[in-house]
Design a protein around this nucleic acid. Structure first.
Length: 187
DNA sequence: CCTGTGATCGTCT
DNA sequence: GACGATCACAGGT
Protein backbone atom coordinates (compact mmCIF):
# COMPACT_ATOMS: atom_id res chain seq x y z
CA UNK A 1 0.00 0.00 0.00
CA UNK A 2 1.35 3.39 -0.99
CA UNK A 3 2.08 5.83 1.80
CA UNK A 4 0.12 9.05 1.42
CA UNK A 5 1.28 12.47 2.43
CA UNK A 6 -1.12 12.35 5.40
CA UNK A 7 0.87 9.44 6.83
CA UNK A 8 3.56 11.94 7.79
CA UNK A 9 1.23 14.58 9.26
CA UNK A 10 1.57 13.11 12.76
CA UNK A 11 4.04 13.05 15.62
CA UNK A 12 7.51 12.01 14.50
CA UNK A 13 7.49 9.53 17.39
CA UNK A 14 4.53 7.70 15.83
CA UNK A 15 5.77 7.89 12.26
CA UNK A 16 9.40 6.81 12.77
CA UNK A 17 8.79 3.26 14.04
CA UNK A 18 6.11 2.70 11.39
CA UNK A 19 8.66 3.45 8.66
CA UNK A 20 10.79 0.47 9.65
CA UNK A 21 9.97 -2.21 7.07
CA UNK A 22 8.53 0.28 4.56
CA UNK A 23 9.86 0.18 1.01
CA UNK A 24 11.58 3.29 -0.34
CA UNK A 25 12.35 3.62 -4.04
CA UNK A 26 13.90 6.58 -5.85
CA UNK A 27 13.54 6.23 -9.60
CA UNK A 28 12.84 2.52 -9.05
CA UNK A 29 16.02 1.97 -7.04
CA UNK A 30 15.98 1.21 -3.31
CA UNK A 31 14.78 -1.28 -0.74
CA UNK A 32 13.23 -1.89 2.68
CA UNK A 33 13.93 0.72 5.35
CA UNK A 34 15.55 -1.10 8.27
CA UNK A 35 16.81 1.81 10.42
CA UNK A 36 15.59 5.35 11.17
CA UNK A 37 15.94 8.07 13.81
CA UNK A 38 13.42 10.64 15.05
CA UNK A 39 14.34 14.34 15.41
CA UNK A 40 11.90 16.68 17.13
CA UNK A 41 12.05 20.48 17.11
CA UNK A 42 12.30 20.61 20.91
CA UNK A 43 15.21 18.17 20.78
CA UNK A 44 18.69 19.81 21.05
CA UNK A 45 20.12 17.29 18.57
CA UNK A 46 17.68 18.34 15.84
CA UNK A 47 18.62 20.77 13.09
CA UNK A 48 15.29 22.50 13.67
CA UNK A 49 16.14 23.18 17.32
CA UNK A 50 16.65 26.92 17.57
CA UNK A 51 14.40 27.81 14.69
CA UNK A 52 14.23 28.09 10.96
CA UNK A 53 17.34 28.79 8.86
CA UNK A 54 18.12 28.54 5.15
CA UNK A 55 19.44 25.01 5.56
CA UNK A 56 16.58 23.53 7.59
CA UNK A 57 13.68 25.33 5.87
CA UNK A 58 12.21 22.06 4.58
CA UNK A 59 11.89 20.76 8.14
CA UNK A 60 9.40 23.56 8.78
CA UNK A 61 7.55 22.96 5.52
CA UNK A 62 4.55 20.67 5.03
CA UNK A 63 4.81 17.04 6.22
CA UNK A 64 5.42 14.35 3.63
CA UNK A 65 8.34 16.09 1.95
CA UNK A 66 12.07 15.42 1.89
CA UNK A 67 14.66 17.28 3.94
CA UNK A 68 18.17 16.72 2.54
CA UNK A 69 21.29 18.23 4.10
CA UNK A 70 25.03 17.85 3.66
CA UNK A 71 26.86 16.06 6.43
CA UNK A 72 30.53 16.67 7.27
CA UNK A 73 30.97 18.55 3.98
CA UNK A 74 30.96 15.23 2.13
CA UNK A 75 27.78 13.16 2.42
CA UNK A 76 24.08 13.80 1.93
CA UNK A 77 21.46 12.68 4.44
CA UNK A 78 17.76 12.06 3.70
CA UNK A 79 14.91 12.86 6.10
CA UNK A 80 11.13 12.59 5.87
CA UNK A 81 9.42 15.69 7.29
CA UNK A 82 6.65 15.14 9.87
CA UNK A 83 4.56 17.67 11.82
CA UNK A 84 5.89 20.74 13.65
CA UNK A 85 9.46 20.96 12.41
CA UNK A 86 10.26 17.32 13.05
CA UNK A 87 11.71 14.72 10.72
CA UNK A 88 12.80 11.10 10.42
CA UNK A 89 16.39 10.44 9.34
CA UNK A 90 16.53 7.43 7.01
CA UNK A 91 19.66 5.55 8.10
CA UNK A 92 19.71 2.19 6.33
CA UNK A 93 18.04 0.11 3.63
CA UNK A 94 17.98 -3.57 2.82
CA UNK A 95 18.54 -3.29 -0.95
CA UNK A 96 15.80 -4.97 -3.02
CA UNK A 97 15.45 -2.97 -6.26
CA UNK A 98 18.13 -1.82 -8.69
CA UNK A 99 21.06 -3.55 -7.02
CA UNK A 100 23.22 -3.07 -10.09
CA UNK A 101 22.61 0.68 -10.14
CA UNK A 102 23.37 0.96 -6.42
CA UNK A 103 26.56 -1.05 -6.80
CA UNK A 104 27.72 1.18 -9.65
CA UNK A 105 27.07 4.36 -7.64
CA UNK A 106 28.70 2.95 -4.52
CA UNK A 107 31.67 1.30 -6.20
CA UNK A 108 31.12 -2.03 -4.46
CA UNK A 109 29.03 -5.18 -4.89
CA UNK A 110 29.00 -5.97 -1.18
CA UNK A 111 25.27 -5.86 -0.24
CA UNK A 112 25.96 -4.66 3.29
CA UNK A 113 27.95 -1.68 1.98
CA UNK A 114 25.30 -0.44 -0.47
CA UNK A 115 22.91 1.45 1.83
CA UNK A 116 23.77 0.66 5.46
CA UNK A 117 24.29 4.18 6.77
CA UNK A 118 22.72 7.55 5.92
CA UNK A 119 25.56 8.70 3.68
CA UNK A 120 25.87 5.41 1.84
CA UNK A 121 22.11 5.26 1.37
CA UNK A 122 21.88 8.63 -0.37
CA UNK A 123 24.85 7.83 -2.58
CA UNK A 124 23.24 4.51 -3.60
CA UNK A 125 19.94 6.25 -4.39
CA UNK A 126 21.46 9.27 -6.13
CA UNK A 127 20.04 11.71 -3.57
CA UNK A 128 21.50 15.22 -3.43
CA UNK A 129 20.36 18.62 -2.22
CA UNK A 130 18.36 18.80 -5.47
CA UNK A 131 15.86 16.44 -3.78
CA UNK A 132 15.37 18.75 -0.79
CA UNK A 133 11.73 19.76 -0.46
CA UNK A 134 10.35 17.22 -2.95
CA UNK A 135 7.05 15.50 -2.11
CA UNK A 136 7.39 11.89 -1.00
CA UNK A 137 4.18 10.65 -2.64
CA UNK A 138 5.23 11.64 -6.16
CA UNK A 139 8.02 10.57 -8.51
CA UNK A 140 10.92 10.11 -8.24
CA UNK A 141 9.89 8.84 -4.77
CA UNK A 142 7.80 5.74 -4.14
CA UNK A 143 6.95 4.62 -0.60
CA UNK A 144 5.06 1.49 0.38
CA UNK A 145 3.80 0.72 3.88
CA UNK A 146 5.58 -1.81 6.07
CA UNK A 147 4.27 -5.19 7.05
CA UNK A 148 4.35 -6.12 10.70
CA UNK A 149 7.91 -6.52 11.90
CA UNK A 150 9.78 -6.60 15.19
CA UNK A 151 11.37 -3.26 16.11
CA UNK A 152 14.44 -2.64 18.25
CA UNK A 153 14.82 0.74 19.99
CA UNK A 154 17.98 2.51 21.17
CA UNK A 155 19.97 5.74 21.38
CA UNK A 156 20.78 7.68 18.21
CA UNK A 157 24.12 7.55 16.42
CA UNK A 158 26.76 10.25 15.98
CA UNK A 159 25.22 13.05 18.04
CA UNK A 160 26.66 14.96 20.97
CA UNK A 161 23.44 16.41 22.42
CA UNK A 162 20.51 14.50 23.93
CA UNK A 163 22.54 11.34 23.47
CA UNK A 164 20.42 9.39 25.94
CA UNK A 165 17.07 9.69 24.13
CA UNK A 166 16.04 6.28 22.69
CA UNK A 167 14.82 7.61 19.35
CA UNK A 168 16.55 5.17 17.00
CA UNK A 169 14.40 2.42 15.53
CA UNK A 170 15.67 -0.63 13.64
CA UNK A 171 14.35 -3.91 12.39
CA UNK A 172 15.28 -6.54 14.96
CA UNK A 173 17.92 -8.91 13.66
CA UNK A 174 18.52 -7.13 10.35
CA UNK A 175 22.09 -7.36 9.12
CA UNK A 176 21.60 -4.22 7.01
CA UNK A 177 21.50 -1.74 9.91
CA UNK A 178 24.42 0.72 10.12
CA UNK A 179 25.19 -0.47 13.66
CA UNK A 180 23.40 -3.06 15.78
CA UNK A 181 21.24 -1.81 18.61
CA UNK A 182 22.29 -3.21 21.93
CA UNK A 183 19.62 -5.56 23.25
CA UNK A 184 17.49 -4.09 26.02
CA UNK A 185 18.80 -4.95 29.49
CA UNK A 186 17.02 -7.88 31.12
CA UNK A 187 14.98 -7.10 34.19
C1' DC B 1 36.75 -7.70 16.50
C1' DC B 2 38.02 -2.95 17.94
C1' DT B 3 39.77 2.10 18.14
C1' DG B 4 41.71 6.17 15.96
C1' DT B 5 42.09 9.53 12.29
C1' DG B 6 41.80 12.36 8.00
C1' DA B 7 38.81 14.12 4.48
C1' DT B 8 36.06 18.29 3.33
C1' DC B 9 32.90 22.36 3.27
C1' DG B 10 28.35 24.52 4.28
C1' DT B 11 26.39 26.66 8.12
C1' DC B 12 26.10 29.40 11.98
C1' DT B 13 28.62 32.12 15.72
C1' DG C 1 36.69 30.28 13.12
C1' DA C 2 34.56 25.95 14.96
C1' DC C 3 31.85 22.24 14.28
C1' DG C 4 29.29 18.54 12.58
C1' DA C 5 22.52 13.45 12.38
C1' DT C 6 29.58 10.29 8.24
C1' DC C 7 32.67 7.19 5.93
C1' DA C 8 36.79 4.60 4.59
C1' DC C 9 40.90 2.95 5.81
C1' DA C 10 44.80 1.76 8.79
C1' DG C 11 46.56 -0.61 12.47
C1' DG C 12 46.36 -3.33 16.87
C1' DT C 13 44.03 -7.19 19.53
Amino acid sequence: MKLRRSFFARSVHDVAPELVGATLLVDRVGGRIVEVEAYHHEDPAAHSFGGRTARNASMFGPPGHAYVYRSYGIHWCLNFVCEEGSAVLIRALEPTHGLEEMAARRGTDEPRLLASGPGRLTQALGITRAYDGLALDRPPFELYAARETEIAVGPRVGITKAVELPWRYAEAGSRFVSRPIRPAPRA
